[in-house]
Design a protein around this nucleic acid. Structure first.
Length: 957
RNA sequence: GCGGGAGUUGCCAAGCCUGGUCAAAGGCGCAGGGCUUAGGACCCUGUCUUUUAGGAGUUCGUGGGUUCAAAUCCCACCUCCCGCACCA
């Protein structure tokens, strides 16, 4: 079936009605937003999830009578698009091929892609078209991009506010860096998508004459166990002036230091071999140690100078042992070499005096070139770090745990001026996409948002605990994010975006210019309509509109907006703010969503803080993660062409609850499509005829409908959309089937009006989920207006007929029992007789029921109280009845128990006579119903006595 | 390592907060039947084991515990997934 014409038809209708365009009016408002997309590729099915959830939310609230605003913008800010443009300039074959085949971008467009804005513009329109096709009920008059002049003004205002509040700070920060691009690199900027992670090393300065021999170490606390220095005799070291000291280091190290803001000037060469046998002074310790040769020292790692702690470092221990055995290999070795002993400074459970030796022996290592030394080092490091304690010979650090001492010793040497910090990439080499080898650079004068600020954190914590967060499980995660959040760089030197107002060399970073823009949606339409002219806008405008600060006349003349217009702009903001619900994928919890809260709290007064966050999981494709390499990314617009928008919406929503990953698979979509087609057929069968007197089954289906409406409404309110869909789409089918079975058995023809009502309510409830097909169904049913504009069905308590509900359930359960018996006995029934329980049992049942409802399930107690009552003393004859009845009651849902208690005594014999038509249809035979207490009953097998209330005895012959 | 989450009957996936509705929804798959020229469409029935009377038995990662009663509460363990920053 071709959905496109149907979708197009209703899309035009919606457009004509302008029903998604929201303006302030007297109704209550509902402002729902989603994180806007970054237009560097077309969107795929996975992107559709969050938007679809938000759209359902918007459509639901609209039907509930709210004035709903659901806007959309486009986030141009950022570096990836810039990187893509550069690769196009460089004629990158892979990327251009991806544009052509994967994204199906026309060639003439690709040629324009050397301009990053063209890339963003292209995918912007692509994504927008997809959103419209998906039926999202967005107010497109409020669309914008983050490089629009007015948006720039807005972000400038935001940053000045943050700065005024002391939340923007300046500092120095190490980053992965491409020396060629002069820009920080992150994972997606590198070849092979390697994360350019790095580790901080402590440099400890040993003195040799006037030279500094800097050793880089991860374990500064082991300074107390140093016995010698290692240098590679085969390496030519550089003598370099580093700031005001003469350092001896490898040339690689000199380069690295340059990026760490050291002034490095190379002044000479010093062969490693020449230093062997010389003595150096140990900082903080009043003695000297030898420089010894070791080939395991690599010139590209650290400084090329290594401090040796043989007691705790397996490499050092092994190298020392090796050297003692081959003294003849090197010249200038000190004669006292053989007297050098490891100095043990850490005690750790499970290791002896010299832990390094223990590990080496355990792993059977015999040479410093053994690859197992890495493993040995790792093991010992971890054991000592988590379990080790410093010994007496470490002075004031004695008895401290290694975890603590490491930091304290580092601090102590740094403070004495004998240490420094070096950053080293964990994986070497990391290459930028441009091909250059990356380094670690210390960026100074970098701007940060101070998310460490304790008062700010505290405020955010308390709001997180107050606001609505769905699903509830994720609330903890937010609180933890707030805890570990530190200063965050908020500006970078390249990319699209807004310049930092007080330092035009910097551009506001993309996760910082996207935190309060929801406020911008409320007023942006006035730029398009011409009331706001960005060039006249300054901070006073935003102060006035958002914070109600300043003088109307003054702001009006400054901004060249008439006072009346300015007032209505302000009113519009005040009408829509705060955000009532923000939807997003869970990947944004540790960044965007948390920043969103932080920044709102920093800038806006409490009444404008966001009320609710709804977080959803991602989408899998046939159970697998979507990825380019797997080739299982389906562009959303392609999918719409194949399956139709509604089927995709339903498939994504019905497969998983909020936080779970939703699996999009072909079978599920096919099933949904069939279902929808079936409904389209069905809709033409019913018409809105007059209602005749209602039979029991009619009252029953109406009761079930009220329950369905109530359940569905509650589920949507909790954003349990999967559950809601489930009720509307599937669970109610079971009821309809039963109803039709009853109608058919009775040969009725007057039920179409009833089904019309039921079906119409169902279609209305489907409308937020599957808007197109719902409109089509709505019109085929002959209903007036649009489904999406109809009122959300209200459950009518008065239409819930408890007796009808219990009666029908008794019928279906009895039929079920009969089927069971037939199945087990494999007989073909000739005659069926049913016996209902005698009066004393019914009375006993009522008593037991109310006892159980009151919470007492003790069989003994119940029997005692029943016996003591004349009405039920017959229980003595059948004590087993109590146990069985209690079980019957316990296996009823709570609601049914209450209902049965409420309706009291029922005439089962009368109810069960309704079975006759059903039995006739199913087995083609007759049915007799007797009461157990009927003297003249037909009961050849003596079955009647097993009857219980709501559990009649059955005889099949 | 730190933090978050998950393990359910062939697959996917509800249930767990608030214990009895749970042999455990639903979808998919599979089997039988109906409809049909035919069908990948639709409808009905079944789908842990067992049972010639609607019953019984054993199951919800593993092992304990609490309780009249545990998929659900508590403890320990095993396994898996995700995030950890200058990046949208």
């Amino acid at each position: 079936m071709d959905w496109a014409p149907i979708e197009e038809k209703w899309r035009q209708k919606w457009l004509a009605e302008k029903q998604f365009e929201s303006n302030p009016d007297s109704r209550k408002k509902f402002f729902v937003t989603v994180a806007y997309p970054y237009p560097n590729s077309p969107q795929h099915i996975g992107h559709g999830r969050t938007y679809t959830l938000a759209d359902v939310h918007a459509r639901f609230m609209r039907m509930q009578g709210y004035n709903v605003l659901f806007p959309m913008g486009f986030h141009y800010t950022g570096t990836p698009i810039l990187g893509m443009a550069r690769r196009v300039q460089e004629n990158d074959k892979d990327l251009i091929e991806a544009f052509r085949t994967l994204y199906k971008v026309p060639d003439e467009k690709i040629r324009e892609f050397s301009d990053p804005v063209k890339i963003a513009d292209y995918f912007h329109q692509e994504i927008k078209a997809g959103m419209i096709e998906m039926g999202y009920s967005i107010d497109w008059r409020r669309e914008f991009t983050t490089i629009d002049p007015f948006y720039n003004k807005f972000i400038e205002w935001q940053f000045k506010k943050l700065k005024e509040n002391g939340l923007v700070v300046q500092g120095t920060h190490p980053v992965g860096w491409c020396p060629k691009d002069q820009n920080p690199v992150s994972q997606h900027d590198t070849l092979g998508d390697v994360e350019p992670s790095f580790t901080e090393y402590t440099i400890i300065k040993f003195k040799y004459n006037n030279y500094v021999l800097p050793t880089a170490t991860l374990r500064p606390e082991t300074i107390f166990g140093v016995t010698n220095i290692w240098m590679n005799p085969n390496v030519n070291y550089e003598i370099a002036k580093v700031d005001n000291e003469e350092w001896i280091i490898t040339s690689e190290c000199a380069t690295k230091l340059g990026f760490l803001n050291k002034k490095v000037t190379k002044t000479g060469i010093m062969p490693g071999a020449q230093l062997v046998g010389k003595k150096v002074k140990v900082p903080g310790r009043d003695d000297e140690i030898f420089i010894l040769p070791a080939t395991f020292v690599k010139s590209d790692n650290g400084t090329g100078v290594v401090m040796s702690v043989p007691a705790h470092a397996p490499f050092d221990y092994q190298a020392l042992e090796d050297l003692k055995k081959e003294t003849s290999k090197y010249a200038n070795l000190p004669s006292s070499l053989s007297e050098i002993r490891p100095i043990s400074i850490i005690e750790t459970e499970g290791y002896g005096e010299i832990p390094a030796r223990d590990v080496i022996e355990k792993l059977g290592i015999t040479s410093q070139d053994s690859p197992k030394l890495e493993e040995a080092t790792k093991e010992l490091y971890s054991k000592e770090f988590y379990g080790g304690k410093l010994k007496q010979n470490t002075g004031k650090f004695s008895q401290k745990s290694v975890t603590v001492a490491k930091e304290e010793v580092k601090r102590w040497i740094l403070d004495s001026g004998n240490a420094d910090i070096l950053y080293e990439l964990n994986e070497n080499p990391v290459r930028c996409r441009c091909g250059a080898e990356c380094v670690v650079k210390l960026l100074d004068n970098q701007w940060f948002l101070n998310y460490s600020n304790p008062e700010w954190k505290e405020k955010v914590h308390s709001w997180i605990n107050e606001m609505r967060i769905l699903p509830e499980e994720i609330r903890n995660e937010f609180n933890h994010v707030v805890d570990w959040l530190k200063e965050r760089a908020c500006a970078r030197q390249h990319g699209l975006g807004t310049k930092l107002p007080w330092d035009k060399n910097w551009i506001v970073e993309s996760l910082s210019d996207s935190v309060i823009y929801m406020a911008y949606y409320t007023i942006v339409k006035y730029v398009k309509s011409g009331e706001i002219k960005p060039e006249y806008i300054s901070d006073s405008f935003f102060d006035y509109v958002f914070l109600e600060k300043g003088d109307l006349q003054k702001v009006s003349s400054e901004s060249k907006i008439s006072p009346e217009n300015l007032e209505s702009i302000k009113k519009e903001f005040q009408y829509y703010y705060p955000v009532n619900a923000r939807h997003s994928g869970r990947d944004l919890v540790p960044n965007h969503l948390t920043f969103f809260i932080f920044n709102h709290l920093a800038i806006f007064p409490r009444k404008y803080w966001p009320e609710e966050i709804v977080v959803n999981g991602s989408v899998l494709m046939d159970g697998k993660k979507m990825s380019k390499s797997m080739g299982n990314i389906i562009p959303l617009r392609d999918a719409i062409k194949i399956h139709g928008a509604d089927s995709i919406r339903l498939a994504i929503l019905v497969s998983a609850e909020l936080l779970q990953d939703a699996d999009f698979n072909q079978e599920a979509v096919r099933g949904i499509k069939n279902k929808l087609e079936g409904m389209l057929d069905e809709a033409t069968r019913y018409n809105d005829t007059k209602e005749t007197a209602l039979a029991q089954e009619d009252r029953w289906i109406y009761s079930r409908l009220q329950q369905l409406i109530a359940k569905t409404t509650t589920s949507i309110q909790k954003m349990r959309l999967r559950e809601a869909l489930h009720y509307v789409l599937y669970e109610f089918d079971t009821d309809l089937q039963w109803y039709l079975k009853r109608i058919e058995a009775k040969g009725r023809k007057d039920h179409l009006g009833i089904l019309h009502k039921v079906f119409s309510a169902r279609v209305a409830m489907m409308s937020p989920f599957a808007p197109y097909v719902s409109e089509e169904l709505w019109s085929r049913l002959g209903n007036q207006g649009l489904a999406s504009e109809s009122q959300w069905p209200l459950p009518d308590e008065a239409k819930i007929d408890l007796l009808a509900l219990q009666s029908e359930s008794l019928l279906s359960r009895t039929i079920e029992d009969i089927r069971n018996i037939v199945k087990v006995t494999k007989m073909s029934p000739k005659k069926i007789t049913i016996y209902t329980a005698s009066t004393w049992k019914v009375r006993a049942y009522q008593k037991i029921l109310s006892t159980v409802i009151s919470g007492d399930v003790n069989i003994g107690n119940i029997i005692k109280s029943l016996i003591s009552d004349k009405e039920t003393e017959e229980i003595k004859k059948d004590p087993d009845f109590v146990k069985k009845t209690v079980n019957d009651i316990l296996s009823d849902p709570q609601d049914d128990r209450d209902a049965k208690n409420k309706i009291g005594l029922v005439d089962e014999t009368k109810i069960l006579s309704e079975l006759e038509s059903l039995i006739k249809t199913e087995y083609g035979i007759g049915l007799q119903v007797f009461s157990e207490s009927d003297q003249n009953k037909y009961d050849p097998k003596n079955k009647a006595k097993t009857a219980r209330p709501y559990k009649p005895a059955i005889l099949i012959e």
